[in-house]
């Protein structure tokens, strides 16, 4: 005999989940921002500018996707910007020492992963605060970069090494289809592979994930290593874009990435969010910053505006969450 009388009233499922709503709002804002800046400056819509815009945010795309994985686990990675500088330094040194672009690539990515592994082991295995550990590696990686470069930039002329970050097909930078490829690969990893489920599980309740035998400790190590690998890739692109390795590159990149991820609707507390949101978040953020440059806004104001964007988004998200909880 089945029991049917005592059904707890199931909540009416809203027609659209809140993340989808969020993405529609972001698309709307992207359109509004583009139209607005397009009116303010006719160069905004030139193919050249779109190329410049996309290239300038290519690195932000990569780093933010790694940050999305980390924030889905409820963590944060403040070290990405410094890691880009450090991994770039290692890559450039390996390149100049061996004159092999392939070895340079591998060295940069491995260096990025090494910093990620340090973060991951401390955060995942030893359960230290992600904020504190990556704040430490934020300083540590920058210090290593300055030591490697001896605080000076190194010019790079190896065409193969510069290809990814510097080459364009017409006005389409090579790096853009590359970013799209990474997005597809990471989407498969996040949505179709068991690892992706473990990322969500670790972020939504570490203890439950542990008791269910999902080894969230290990999951955390790997998301930081992934973020490090993406920082390594970003380092290669950064070097390619300016034809030199710079010890102070990637400054404030962690800030931009965190803002873009939050803008894209990923929860600060883990377990909720999608890569698509991050892509939209980076686009909107990139358009606003690029638009501010094109409309000749005082560059000193940019940081202020960035800060206001982050504060505004966090405020809005929190208020919406509280209203829902009522």
């Amino acid at each position: 005999m089945t029991m049917s009388t005592a059904a707890a009233p199931a909540r009416p499922r809203r027609a659209m989940d809140s993340l989808t709503q969020r993405y529609l709002v972001l698309v709307g804002l992207i359109v509004i921002a583009s139209v607005g800046f397009g009116i303010a400056n006719e160069n905004f819509y030139s193919l050249a500018n779109i190329g410049i815009l996309l290239r300038s945010i290519a690195v932000l795309f990569l780093v933010s996707m790694g940050m999305t994985f980390i924030m889905l686990t409820g963590g944060i990675d403040l070290s990405v910007g410094s890691n880009v500088a450090f991994a770039g330094g290692v890559g450039v040194i390996a390149l100049t020492a061996t004159d092999s672009a392939a070895l340079g690539f591998v060295a940069a990515i491995l260096a990025g992963m090494a910093i990620g592994a340090i973060n991951g082991v401390f955060i995942g295995r030893l359960r230290l605060s992600a904020f504190m550990v990556t704040l430490a590696t934020f300083a540590l990686a920058r210090g290593l970069a300055l030591v490697i470069y001896d605080a000076d930039s190194i010019n790079v002329s190896n065409a193969a090494f510069l290809w990814l970050g510097g080459q364009s097909w017409g006005s389409l930078p090579v790096v853009i289809p590359f970013v799209a490829l990474v997005f597809v690969a990471l989407s498969v990893l996040l949505y179709r592979a068991p690892f992706g489920r473990d990322v969500y599980a670790a972020g939504s309740n570490f203890n439950t994930a542990f008791v269910l035998g999902r080894m969230p400790q290990r999951t955390l190590v790997w998301v930081y290593v992934l973020s490090g690998a993406l920082a390594g890739l970003s380092a290669i692109i950064t070097v390619g874009r300016v034809s030199s390795g710079q010890p102070w590159t990637g400054l404030y990149l962690e800030f931009d990435a965190i803002t873009a991820v939050i803008l894209g609707g990923t929860s600060l507390f883990g377990g909720r969010g999608r890569l698509l949101g991050t892509i939209l978040g980076v686009l909107l953020y990139g358009i606003i910053i690029n638009g501010l440059v094109l409309t000749g806004t005082n560059p000193y104001l940019q940081s202020l505006i960035k800060g206001l964007i982050l504060l505004g988004v966090v405020l809005l998200d929190t208020l919406v969450q509280r209203r829902k909880a009522q």
């Binding site: 489920r197 969500y200 599980a201 939504s204 309740n205 203890n207 439950t208 994930a209 542990f210 008791v211 929860s267 883990g270 377990g271 909720r272």
Partner: peptide, 13 residues
């Protein structure tokens, strides 16, 4: 609530 469910995830997950 402490270590039984994964709150923001679906019933399926």
């Amino acid at each position: 609530d402490k270590n039984g469910i994964l709150p923001p995830l679906s019933v399926r997950d």
